[in-house]
Simulated assay, not measured.
Amino acid sequence: MNVTGDQALVKKLNKSIVLERIRLHAPLSRAQLSSQTGLNKATVSNLVAELITEGLVYETGLGESSGGRKPLMLLFNSRAGFVLGIEVSVQYIQGALTDLAGAIEAELVLPLGQHDPAFVMEQIRKLVQQLMQVTPPSPHGIVGIGLGVPGMVDESGTVLFAPNLGWEEVPLQQQLETELGLPVVVDNEANVGAQGELYYGMDGEHRQLVRDLVYISAGSGIGAGIIIDGKPYQGAWGYAGETGHMTIDWNGRSCTCGSRGCWELYASEKAYTAPALSLPAHSTAKLLPFARQGDADTLSVFRDIGRYLGVGITNIVNSLNPGMLIIGGPLAEARPWLEQSMREVIDERALPYHRRQLQIRFSTLGSRSTMLGAAYAATAPFLGRVRVSL
């Protein structure tokens, strides 16, 4: 079957290619863009002129001459617009106003005292309104909003099932777009967290080398964002990555998902509420001071959580054979007290060829991975990325 596109689609594709090249590899001249993209010089010049008119690209200085006049160099204008990246968690929502390169302009955290969708929507609106008030002037203003939520999300941005929030069939994207009048992208929080790590958590050189990555979001629950061959992997129907609900104890504790013995009951903040424990707090942030003081009960719990993290990570490593695995979310802040026991289990149980070149890292973005990944998810459509399905 032959697949063709009209001139408008071809132009949009070419324009996206040129902008992406400038964004990732600037400063570049027009001649360099032509050479690197394979587009002829006239096409590049016309597309660059449009991008300059739109405020997305600007000229600066003079580059090295190859024999003629010194060329003007092109740079990406990351402050041509702004986006909002939002993470909806069980205990809070946090949001960041970023420019088009992920630089944070402002941040805000609001508590979630309840999980009723109407209440959460109201908190999201408050957060958006407060961040919009501090948005600097720019040619394009706020160009989109991205949200990461702890649950299964379909292509229309409907939260199908979020057991930790008690949600089913919540059309979050549709409601927010109607009320806010802006493009909205909604995805699973670990999926966007993986994109945050890939695009904002490592430099371009490392990003090109990492083709297969798993990001583990460990907080009030556990989820996994999976990158395969440089692209997000979401499964046949978009629900891949619900690793927190793989069974590690066939007759274990009951889970809100309806099953038993799920990984997240033992390797997330849910472990703090186990019947046999009596801890002074039920969130990682509140437990960290006790760990720093050497509280024996807190240290013991973190070591156990590390072991259980190691068990689940071993299953993922043996199944997917990723090149890199990154641990993020609130529990990443407890790295000094859980990493050793986690690595001991992985070294003991993961298949030797699978772990031989495996890189295991803790997030460089800390608790911001999902928030920044959501911002990236809102930025990409504005910058003109076009999916072509054959």
Rank of each mutant, 00 (worst) to 15 (best):
I222D: 11
G223L: 10
G223Q: 11
G223A: 09
G225I: 03
G225Q: 04
I226D: 06
I227A: 07
I228M: 06
D229G: 06
G230A: 04
K231G: 00
Q234K: 11
Q234V: 05
Q234M: 03
Q234E: 05
W237L: 15
G238K: 02
G238S: 05
Y239S: 14
A240F: 08
G241N: 09
G241L: 14
E242D: 08
E242A: 11
E242C: 03
T243Y: 15
G244E: 10
H245K: 09
I248Q: 09
I248H: 09
D249N: 14
D249M: 11
D249E: 13
W250P: 04
W250C: 02
W250H: 12
R253T: 10
S254T: 12
C255M: 09
C255I: 11
R260N: 14
G261D: 10
C262E: 03
W263L: 15
W263A: 02
L265M: 14
Y266K: 01
Y266N: 01
A267C: 08
S268W: 12
S268D: 11
E269F: 06
E269P: 09
E269V: 08
K270Q: 15
T273V: 13
A274Y: 06
A274T: 08
A274S: 13
P275G: 12
P275L: 07
L277S: 02
A281K: 10
A281L: 09
H282S: 12
H282N: 09
T284G: 09
A285L: 04
A285R: 14
K286Y: 01
K286G: 01
P289T: 00
F290G: 00
Q293P: 00
Q293W: 00
Q293K: 14
G294V: 01
A296M: 00
D297N: 07
D297S: 13
T298L: 00
T298D: 00
L299I: 02
L299P: 01
S300G: 03
V301H: 08
V301P: 07
F302I: 03
I305G: 04
I305C: 03
G306Y: 14
Y308W: 11
Y308M: 12
L309A: 14
L309D: 08
L309R: 11
G310E: 08
G310I: 07
G310C: 05
G310R: 03
V311Q: 10
G312F: 05
G312W: 07
I313N: 06
